[in-house]
C-alpha cells in the first residue's frame, strides 16, 4: 500500500502542470488479453489514439517521467539505448504508432520490459509516448557508419 501511495505521490509531483487533464483519457473498453499478444501485431480493433498528440507540454512531462520511473536506467539518457534498446532511433520492434508504443508500456514486452499498466495511469503513459515520439529523428540517418 505504501508503495502505491508513494508512486501516486510521485506522479502528482512529476506532473504538477498537467495533472488537471489526468482523468480524461482512459483507454477504450477492450479486453486486451484476447486481442494483443506481446510481440504480435495488434488487430485494428485494438488501435488507440493518443489524446495528447502534438502537445509539447505532454512530451516535456513525459521526459520527466522517463527519468522518475527509471526508464532511463535501462534505455539510457535521451532514450539512446543501454541494457534496453534505443527508443530514439525511429525504429520499433513492436510497432511505432502512438497506440503501439502505449501497448508496449502498458503490457510490457518479453526480454525484460516491465508491464506498467498496473502502476501508471493512462495519462502518464500517453505522456511517455509523447516524449518518445518527440525523440524520433525526422528521417533515418543512422543506417550507415563509415570511418
Amino acid at each position: 500500500m505504501t508503495a502505491i501511495r508513494t508512486l501516486a505521490g510521485l506522479i502528482v509531483l512529476c506532473l504538477a502542470g498537467g495533472a488537471a487533464q489526468a482523468q480524461r483519457s482512459a483507454p477504450p473498453a477492450i479486453n486486451y488479453d484476447q486481442h494483443v499478444d506481446a510481440g504480435g501485431t495488434p488487430p485494428p480493433a485494438g488501435t488507440l489514439e493518443n489524446p495528447l498528440k502534438g502537445d509539447k507540454q505532454a512530451a516535456e512531462d513525459g521526459g520527466k517521467l522517463f527519468s522518475s520511473f527509471n526508464c532511463d536506467g535501462c534505455h539510457g539518457g535521451g532514450a539512446l539505448g543501454a541494457e534496453g534498446p534505443s527508443l530514439a532511433d525511429g525504429r520499433w520492434k513492436y510497432g511505432g504508432t502512438d497506440g503501439e508504443i502505449y501497448h508496449s508500456i502498458f503490457y510490457g514486452r518479453p526480454r525484460g520490459m516491465p508491464a506498467w499498466g498496473g502502476t501508471l495511469p493512462p495519462d502518464a503513459i500517453w505522456r511517455l509516448v509523447s516524449y518518445l515520439k518527440s525523440q524520433e529523428p525526422k528521417r533515418d540517418t543512422l543506417s550507415t557508419t563509415s570511418w
Binding site: 539512446l80 539505448g81 534498446p85 534505443s86 532511433d89 525504429r91 520499433w92 520492434k93 543512422l142 543506417s143 557508419t145
Partner: peptide, 8 residues
C-alpha cells in the same frame, strides 16, 4: 537487431 540502432 534492426530495431536498435545507436550512435557511436
Amino acid at each position: 537487431d534492426p530495431d536498435d540502432i545507436r550512435p557511436p
